[in-house]
Amino acid sequence: MAHAVEIRNLHKSFGALQVLKGIDFTVDPGQVVCVIGPSGSGKSTLLRCVNLLEEPTSGQVVVDGVELTHRDVDIDAARRRVGMVFQQFNLFPHMTALENVMIAQRRVLKRGRAEAERIAVENLEKVGVADKRDSYPAQLSGGQQQRVAIARALAMSPALMLFDEPTSALDPELVGDVLTVMRKLAEEGMTMLVVTHEMAFARDVADRVVFMDGGVIVEDGPAEQVIGAPRHERTKSFLRRVLDPTHTDV
């Protein structure tokens, strides 16, 4: 079976700072993989390399059979198949929710207005914010904004969805709405790569959990094993700190 994502020996440096030090991993179609790890471990950079928002220093990224790191690849075409959801939502503030979900369908996929609107409304309904279609982002709560952002990515019919700490900028009481939407997507069989601090979500929804630290993958396995019975000391120590913030063992 072809992989949805295949990453081989990926390195990324910002100047002298080595952020990714040789990453190898794969995501299979329909899989939900959560990437966890302390801040600065390189997990967001890894995610951003998957759709080439960051250009890898060396190594290969293959998404849906297309090697994005090949110099002849049409990166704009390749990105259409990869949806991305950001920590800060990044909705377009000068457009309504509906326009946010329509604009790339119109300009990139060249869909007609009626078709783009129909697909936009479908996706806004799916994430539960169809009643906010004519609101501007500034008029929406963080949770609503993030759900519009998810609808915007889904409207492009992606083969893979990337989530970069999608709930980290939300007020605690709004986290649940966004996680519910993501859980529903996972159940529908969407291939998802999620950088997150939500351990309960990772344990319940992810097929696999990847623990990163210091620019390398420390542990990669089934969710119940990596979170429930971690093998590596670094994983254990990280999970102790995350699951019980008052616990100090460092």
Partner: peptide
């Protein structure tokens, strides 16, 4: 204009000029 705006647009498949 925040950098995330360009990133969001590019991640939707828009070219730089688009």
């Amino acid at each position: 204009v925040p950098r995330g705006q360009m990133e969001a647009a590019r991640s939707l498949g828009m070219s730089y000029s688009r």
